[in-house]
């Protein structure tokens, strides 16, 4: 049987690829020309990482590679071999939302929500470097991300609020500890 393939795209070789995705050691067999966004979405199960434009213009596909924000649509998966990757799914620690996730909901940082994962990972990187960024620093951090719903203002508000939380260190106790109240608020007014 005749195989029709694009002449400039010979069948790629499969390679073994290892990375720490959201804290979990992940080993996958991928094509050597695979784009990181495709690997994350199709093989590593991170459907939270969004595909908006495929050419690095919208920022929806942002992920953290070894803590730095990167556009996964412009990164070959092989470049990220052996790194530690954080997507939006890895921002909460399983029990707590990251402060920026919490404030995005409460300050209107997210409307349709499609650009939200990209913003969240970029902002989480900003906040881990600088827990009280100035407005200008916030704006430069998110300048590569497009949002068509919010006009950015409520996103900046959310970052400021998250920064307040981080600076105040207002965290609840570890909910996995034995003393943690399984039903916080029970018996009192909520």
């Amino acid at each position: 049987m005749v195989q029709y393939r694009l002449p400039m795209l010979p069948h790629p070789e499969e390679i073994e690829w290892t990375a720490e995705v959201n804290g979990a050691e992940t080993t996958l067999h991928i094509e050597n020309n695979a784009v990181l966004l495709d690997v994350l979405r199709e093989k590593a199960g991170s459907l939270g990482t969004k595909r908006g434009c495929d050419m690095g213009t919208c920022g929806c596909c942002s992920v953290l590679i070894d803590g730095d924000p990167r556009l996964s649509c412009l990164t070959l998966a092989s470049e990220a071999d052996g790194t530690s990757i954080t997507t939006v799914e890895g921002l909460s620690d399983g029990h707590h939302l990251h402060p920026i996730q919490q404030t995005f909901t409460e300050f209107g940082g997210s409307q349709c929500g499609f650009c939200t994962p990209g913003f969240l990972v970029v902002i989480s990187a900003l906040l881990s470097e600088n827990s009280s960024p100035s407005d200008e620093e916030i704006k430069s951090a998110i300048e590569g991300n497009l949002c068509r719903c919010t006009g950015f203002q409520q996103i900046v508000d959310s970052v400021r609020a998250a920064s307040d939380i981080l600076v105040a260190g207002d965290r609840v106790e570890d909910s996995t500890s034995a003393k943690s109240d399984p039903h916080p608020g029970f018996g009192e007014e909520v």
Binding site: S92, H96, A161, I165, H183, F186, V190
Partner: peptide
């Protein structure tokens, strides 16, 4: 200031109802 207390499976939830006397 917003709290930071989202706990999947352990959400602070609302009780469905109360009597006239207790609060």
């Amino acid at each position: 200031m917003v709290g930071y207390k989202q706990q999947p499976g352990k959400l602070p939830f609302s009780k469905p109802g109360s009597g006239g006397k207790n609060s």
